[in-house]
Nucleic acid binder design. Structure first.
Length: 489
RNA sequence: GGCGCAUUCGUCUAGCGGCCUAGGACACCUCCCUCUCAAGGAGGAGAUCACCGGUUCGAAUCCGGUAUGCGCUACCA
């Protein structure tokens, strides 16, 4: 146990929890659990324009779903709160005041329009795009006058003009930045809200964060943050910048690549343990062979030293495969729970279900078996179990069209209706008998029957399907298909 | 434009100077099983380790440069 190890996940509630954020949260969580430290959730809601209550709720819900529980933060409290940055404004203001007093920051009265114009000019000249520091050394009297006059201003950090700042990163190594390339960035916006870089440092310091594990899109921000730590006489935490997650085209993963939000994966019927396992393997590995990690394995084996430093492409196919592997381990009762919402959403089932329906669902799910890799696939795989009428459309028509079909279906109907018990083994006996009598190949009979019962070219074990459907429905569908086949002749 | 990071099979990765004629997984292909599809079994193809130089007896591994990709360069986080 190391109580001094404290890490945090600090999402901004401006959208849903996406796979990148979830992976960052997971690494933080794993590190904390592995080290016996504490995992803190902090909500960075300083962007009043974009932050929403809805996003916050969704993020929290998705984290709970993934099983990433936090020791301090919204809902659980803690003695380093509040955990919403919007509730910490006076804290930032105080620290900002201190920097101002120490001459380490200054008020800037430039309007956003002026700044924009300035930047465009610099861009046009091909120069380094930075604030020109025109307010950096304004006379104190002028500053006071303009503040008193109610002129809006931001507070900027007085970045050192020379020297170097070194970021010591656990995954990237030591990176040196020339201070001359660092801008006099904004600490406090004119609406009195802090910027990310400032709030982040103040909070990480006050919350006694020991390790900052985050996406490497923040690497360039880190020297700025280190400069702030120095300005307030605090020790920076240990940094670990993990590579980002990309789409197949190697650009930042986004919606156009497919599902990216955890909520979407959940809605599609993915399993949290599969997602956690998959996400852990994106940018981290244990050895050259292990792919499956139960949550406890992950906790035991996780280490920052094994985090890769190269960006990873999100592979939907591999996630689906992994999910399928986890799905195989589920019992039929669990699978019913997984599958039910999708059947309901597809309009194939109503809720609530009684024990008889539940039993039926368990049979269905058993017959479908390993074909089901993701919850929502149940609809394509097994819709015929829940439909009264089967449509014979497209290429399955060609199978019914075969000249022998009406006759053979008729024969089958007769034999099946004479069966004592309508079980797979008995049905198989009948079907195989018919096949050999007619001198057909097995598929010659099974194919049209499959189409008759499911409306599809592919399906799970036909005999088991028949058993679950029961004699009445089987005979009815065979009759209907025979009719259709006759029309097609 | 400036600064930073990255670069091993299509993808995720193993590799931290000799064990590598580069290993595993997903995806792909073939065969077996088989009522189809999955699953399973057996095989296969696939990476001159981005490129060019250097260091070394020896480099995927160390160093430099080039190229490419990505990120930052906001009163977004």
């Amino acid at each position: 146990m190391d109580a001094d190890i404290r890490v945090r996940f600090a999402p901004s509630p401006t959208g849903y929890l996406h796979v990148g954020g979830a992976r960052t949260a997971l690494f933080n969580w794993l590190f904390a659990r592995n080290q016996g430290g504490r995992f803190i959730l902090r909500i960075e809601d300083t962007d009043m324009e974009r932050s929403t209550e809805e996003s916050y709720r969704a993020i929290v819900e998705d984290m709970r779903w993934l099983g990433l529980d936090w020791d301090e933060g919204p809902g659980v409290g803690g003695d380093h709160g509040p955990y919403f940055q919007s509730e910490r404004r006076t804290i930032y203001a105080e620290w900002c005041e201190r920097l101002l007093k120490d001459g380490k920051a200054y008020r800037c009265f430039c309007s956003q329009e002026d700044l924009k114009r300035m930047r465009e000019e610099l861009r046009r000249l091909g120069k380094d795009i930075k604030y020109d520091r025109r307010c950096r050394d304004l006379p104190p009297e002028e500053v006071k006058r303009r503040v008193d006059a109610g002129e809006p201003f931001v507070v900027r950090f007085k970045a050192p003009l020379s020297g170097q700042t070194v970021v010591e990163d656990v995954v990237k190594g030591n990176i040196t930045f020339e201070n001359s390339t660092i801008d006099d960035f904004v600490l406090l916006k004119s609406d009195r809200y802090p910027t990310y870089n400032f709030a982040c440092v103040i909070d990480d310091m006050l919350m006694e964060i020991s390790h900052v594990i985050r996406g490497d899109d923040h690497l360039s921000n880190t020297p700025k943050q280190i400069l702030i730590y120095r300005a307030i006489n605090a020790n920076p935490p240990i940094f670990a910048h993990v590579p980002m997650i990309m789409g197949p085209d190697k650009t930042r993963l986004s919606k156009r690549h497919g599902a990216t939000s955890i909520g979407q994966f959940r809605a599609d019927g993915y399993l949290p343990e599969a997602l956690v396992n998959y996400l852990a393997l994106l940018g981290w590995s244990y050895d050259d062979a292990t792919t499956f990690f139960e949550r406890d394995d992950l906790i035991r084996k996780f280490s920052l030293a094994k985090v890769s430093s190269t960006p990873a492409v999100f592979d939907y196919a591999k996630l689906q495969w992994l999910n399928g592997e986890y799905m195989k381990r589920k019992g039929s009762s669990e699978k019913v729970d997984i599958v039910l919402p999708h059947l309901v959403a597809a309009g194939l089932m109503g809720e609530p279900i009684d024990s008889q329906v539940r039993q039926y669902l368990e049979q269905v799910v058993t017959v479908v078996g390993e074909r089901l890799k993701v919850g929502n696939q149940i609809v394509d795989l097994a819709d015929f179990f829940f439909r009264d009428e089967i449509m014979y459309e497209g290429e399955v028509e060609d199978i019914l069209k075969r000249h022998y079909v009406p006759a053979v279906l008729s024969l089958l109907e007769n034999r099946l209706s004479g069966l004592d018990t309508f079980e797979a083994s008995a049905i198989e006996h009948v079907m195989r008998g018919l096949v050999s009598e007619m001198g057909m190949k097995t598929g010659d009979l099974f194919q049209p029957v499959r189409v008759a019962l499911t409306g599809k070219k592919h399906s799970p074990d036909l005999l088991k399907i028949m058993e679950v459907l029961g004699r009445d429905r089987v005979l009815k569908r065979l009759r209907l298909a025979r009719k259709k086949a006759l029309e097609l002749q």
